[in-house]
Structures are given as C-alpha cells and as structure tokens.
Design a protein around this nucleic acid. Structure first.
Lengths: 205, 205, 205, 205
DNA sequence: CATGAATGAGTCTTCATTCAT
DNA sequence: AATGAATGAAGACTCATTCAT
C-alpha cells in the first residue's frame, strides 16, 4: 500500500515504524519470513529501502518489533474485553476465548505470521521472549478464573488444555480453513469448558 | 574384505537419501529451514556438497522428501499401534493419542522440524499436500472410532477438538517444555476424552 | 554542477550500463561467452559483483543488451554514412560496404564478439532476434539500391551475395587476419560489384 | 565370445570414439558447446559417463576430436569429388563449390556445430589449428585452379572471395534458412564465377 | 574395459547493510 | 530524515573429473 501522507517527505518516527511493521506483516503472510526481504517490505510500504535501517537497527530488529506488535495487539484485546465492568469469572474466561478467535487476531493473514514466527522460535530465542510472558500471563489468568468458577477442578490442567486448544485450532484454521472455522473452534472450546463446568457456558455451546 | 558399510565410497541410493534426510532433520531442528543450507546438511551428514543435487533434484526436493519421511513415520506409528489385535474402539483411539505423544515423533527435535514446515506452509502449498491427507485420514479415523464408542456424541466435533489438542500441545511442548510435558499432555487429552465418554478412558487419566 | 564521472560512488544508470556492456565486450573477445563470468566482467569494469544484477536483470539480460548495443552501433554507422547528402545509389551501396569494414565495427575485438554470439544463435533464439531485423533491413536496402543502379540485374541475388561476402570476410578476417585484411576485403567486394555493375565502382577496385 | 555389436559390453575403441563424437555433434547442434555436458553426450550415445574420460583424455580432447572429424569429413568430400577422372580445372573448382554445399556437410546440424566452434576460435587456438591448414589447402587449390582456367584474372582475390562466400553463405543459411537455401547459395557462387570466367560455369548458373 | 556415485571448485544470483548525496 | 546505488558475503546449483567396484 502506498503511504497516506505522501506529500510529507518526513514523518514522525512512530508513523514510519508502524507503516513498516504493517508492511512486514503483509509480506510475511504472503512469502514467509525468509521470503520477506527489506526491498519487498519497503515496496509494500511505499517507502524507500534505506528507511528500514534508519528506523530499525537491522532486519532482525524489524522482525522482533513486528512480533511484539502482534503479541501486544492480542494481549490488549483480551485484557480490554476482560476489563469490562460487571463480568463474573466465567464471563471473563469467555472473553479470553472469544478474543482468541476474534477476526482481528485470528485472520488467515495474522495466523500465517504467527506460525511463521513459531517456526523460527526454536533457534531464535528472542522470538520466544516476545510471546512467553504474554502466554504465561494468559494461562495463569485462565487458571485463576477456573479456580474462581469452581474449586473442584484441576484448574491448571484446564488452563493448559485451553492453551493447547487455542494454538491447535489456530494451526488447523490456518492449514485447513474449510474444516476449521472461527465459529466452530470457539464453540468447541466452549463445549470443552461446559463439560468441565457443567453449570456454566451452556448458552455458548 | 570389502563391505558395503558407511565407510564405502559408494552406497545404495536409499542409504544416501536416508542419510541426507536425517541430516536435514537435524539441521532444521537446529537452524530452521532458511538456516538449513546444503553446505550445513552435507557437513552434518559427512558427505560432499554436490551429493545433494545428485540424489535429490534440488534443495526443495530434499525438504519435501524430509517432510514426507516425517509424515510417513508418524502415520506408520499410529497405524501400527491401532492395528494390533484385540483392540476395541476406545483402545484404538487411545493408540492414536499415544502415538501423537510418542517420543519418536514428539521429541523436541522432531517438533522443531514440524513447526518449521508449518511456518512455511502458507506460501508453499506443496508442504501442505504432504500432510493434508494424513491429517484428514487421522481425523476421520478418530471420528469413526468416536461413533463406534458412543452414538450419543458429536463425533466430528470431538475429532476436530482432538486434532486441535494434538497440534496445540505439540506447539506448547516445543515452546514451553517445562510447563508442557509429554505425560501431562497425553493425560490432559485422556481427561478430555473421559469427559466426553464417561465410561471410557477412566484408567488413563 | 554535479559531476557524474567515474569517480563518483553512484552514477547515472546509463553510464553504469555502458560501462558493463563495454566490459562485457572486452571479456567476450578475450574469453568467449562461456568464459565471460560476471566476476570477470565486473573486475574488468572495476565495479562490484552485485552491480550486474542491479542494473541488468540477469547475466542473460546483460549479454542480450551487449549484442543489441553492437547491432545498433553497426546499424547507426551505415545508416549515417548512407544519409549524407548528395549520394547516388551506388555511393549509398558503397557506404554500406565501407561501414561493414569500418575499423569501429570490424576490429578483431568486435568480430570475436560477433562470432561468439553467432555460435550461440542456434539454441538461443533471442540472440537471433537482435540481429535478424537489422540484417534483413540492410539486405533489403542493398537490393533496393541495386535496382536503382540498374534494372538489368538480379538484385536479390546480389544483395544476398553481399550479405554472404560481408559475413564470410568477417569470419576469415577473424580467423586468418594475415590473409584477410580490411582493405583487401572491401576491395574484393567492390570488385564483385564492379563485375555486376560494369559502369560503377570502377574507382573503388 | 566377444562380439563388436552394440550389445557387447566392450567394443573396439574406434567404435566407441565414433559413437561419442557423433553424440557430441548432436549435442552441440542442440545446445551449443557450453551446453554440451559429458552427461548429455553419454546419454545421447547411450553410454556411461565414465567412458568419456576413458576414451578421451578430457572434455577438451573430445571437442577437438569432434572438430577434427568434421574438418576431415569435409576435406574428404571435396578431395574425392575433385579426384574423379576426366575433370578439367573448371570442373574441379565446381566440385569444391558443390562439396561446400553438400547436404552431408552443410546440414543445419553441421552448420550449427561449425559456428559453435568458430565462436570459440578466438580464445582457443587449438580449434583454429584444426581448420587452418584445411582452409588454406582449399583456398590455395582454388587459386591454382583459377590460374589454370585463365591467366587473366586475380586468382588470389577470387580464391579469397570464394572462401568468403562459402563461410558467409554458411552463416546466413544457418541463421536465415528461409532466405538462404543450398541451391541458391551454390547458384550465387557459380554466378560469381561465371562473371569472373565468362566462358565457364554458364550451365551452372 | 565399463560403470556411475562421489567430489569440490566455480558460477549466478540474492540480499542485508552501508553511505554519498 | 530520506534516497537508492553500491558492496560483497553467502547460498543453490552445475559439471568435469576421479575412482572404487
């Protein structure tokens, strides 16, 4: 896409950084991480090649910033939804589930980028750092909510299982979109939760 | 005496192909797909650079062959386990679950390779072809077994959920091995199955 | 004023392209087409290796551009000479002959390059495209001029024979420079023309 | 019992050499010299790769042998035709001309190979050696025959012009077969000779 | 003699990074 | 801040040559 303020030759650093990160997301979703060249990113952003190394220290820094932006966007989504007033624990847990499958986070484009990064995670520890604490925070929050809902469950196992379902459905939605759709995935998660908490989540199944 | 062992200058094509595929698995697990250079693979295998393009048409062919080998190894594992005599439907479903978390398939090394390929799947349709029919076959088998166990369940949803759990636990085992261990993952899956089929899987939880 | 001379780090694209084409001509004349590596070309040009694929899409594009440059240089030579004012048909035909053996076009260096390309022409149709229409144009022009000089000749055969003489003398000048010199070749061609048009070309024999 | 036919695992060296040279001619005509790999040659010949370096010292030796075979075939053709009894000087000269455009020597396939070698001649002196003395011999023979036919001509210029016509028509026949055909080329050469020797070659024009 | 797997130097091409303008 | 030409290291791939069988 072409820069919206094409008239200004200079722009605020934050604006440029966001432009570049958005272009990076698009490029990764189309061509993968190794296929994402700085030339391609800057062309996508409608900017000049040299800008990348001006606003980011290196290509690696751009990729890390992109992953961080993605992770933060996701975190903000469920944190905000959970922070609404008047929600009980089950509602809050449901908010986390729904955020997981929210179109803004769970589009094919975004999923492609997520798994592109996951594929590099093993040998790029820095990528893991971007997601680890956010994942941990969400898992612990889920476990706490489970405990609030009912004291008679293995909250840790449920929270871990939720994490598994989130990522597993994401992957299957990415690879087999015809068989795995957002609605079905969310419904399957609520079916699981309803089985664990028979007096909750009935209306969401 | 002249032997045909690995010290011989020439070897059967199948032997060399396996050597190269094994080295590729090791390289991908260590450095990712883009970091897996032919130089690195051949060095890992103790062979010369030119040999790859002799036994495989291209680097891409090597990668595809590697993914196929991985997929076939996995398929053979659960097919064999399921094919044992005297198993009822629940036993067979359990065999699939256990195969999913079997050390040979579910080592950190193998998981790293799986997700390296998944990360490229979006823009390399050929990779998806290698796994799609195997995944479908497993999911349909699971659904059939669920129907055999009980007619009163949403077998398709359970099978889909199982697929989600398999992949999701795999990813979390890869990224957070301290929090997600093979035993726990299998147990969590059986807990899920026990909730769906209360008169089965009790002893596996 | 901004100087675009060779000492500047960056130069106008056309300047660089010409530099690279000139270096290519030199390399081909010295080492043939298959011996003309990009490393050799860029070293000859005093530029860095990567620059070729920046200014040309590929090595093949560089070679095609080189052939086109050669063909165009040749065409411009006889077109210009023929376009001088006050020339009759025989003078114009003589201009074509003289251009064919002009030092700028007919040096050993250039001839070596021409025949290097001719040697590849059979299996590289694109090379033929570069020369075909120029050759045709020259042959048809010659035929037309022959008809203007005299109506009593087989103008097409003469034009075809001229083409044969041009190329044949070129090849022999390249291979046996001691026996075939520019002056002798031109003179032999004029002797042929004088035999066909007895009342013309007498002073050039 | 050891037989010499193609089914035998071993064959006389001369047979193998000829097989390889023929295959080389075919490969060069199809793919040029740089595209003629030993793998391609041996596949074309239906032989194994290792044989080349057994029967020829190197690829270069194979190419030189191929050029020599071509040159010798050509030489034998006009020498034989010229050696027929009862021929006068003009007949002998005509025999040289006809040999030059004989289908066995002047096929598109052979022409492609000739010019492939000519293209490399500049920087591979060894190739020139293969043709130089044969070309010289033919040119001197032509000159001698011209002198026998008539004392009133510039025999050296005519012989040189003939050489030019031979090579020039060859090249144009290779590049523009539609415009330059064997019959027309031979006829044009005889037209030239008839112009030089008005009382000869009239019936060949 | 014959085979074809193995070797590794050489080539084209890509691309992150630099830097003069 | 911004530009984009220039650089050169690194990687995939080719292929003449070798050599164990």
């Amino acid at each position: 896409m072409i820069s919206k303020d094409k008239t200004s030759r200079t722009a605020a650093p934050e604006v440029r950084r966001k432009q570049l990160i958005d272009a990076t997301v698009t490029c990764i979703s189309k061509h993968g991480i190794s296929g994402t060249t700085l030339t391609a990113v800057t062309k996508e952003a409608g900017l000049s090649l040299g800008l990348v190394n001006f606003h980011f220290k290196s290509k690696d820094a751009l990729l890390t910033a992109t992953l961080n932006a993605l992770a933060e966007e996701h975190r903000a989504l469920w944190m905000t939804a959970m922070g609404q007033g008047g929600l009980d624990a089950a509602d809050k847990l449901a908010a986390i589930v729904n955020a997981q499958f929210h179109p803004r986070v769970c589009s094919r484009k975004k999923l492609a980028v997520w798994f592109a990064f996951f594929g590099e995670t093993t040998h790029r520890k820095s990528y893991r750092d971007s997601t680890a604490h956010i994942d941990t925070e969400r898992q612990e929050t889920s476990a706490r909510l489970c405990r609030e809902i009912s004291a008679d469950v293995d909250a840790d196992q449920i929270a871990a299982t939720l994490e598994g379902l989130f990522d597993g459905f994401w992957l299957n939605m990415l690879m087999y979109p015809a068989r795995f759709r957002r609605q079905d995935a969310a419904q399957a998660v609520f079916a699981y939760l309803h089985a664990q908490f028979p007096s909750h989540f009935a209306d969401r199944v």
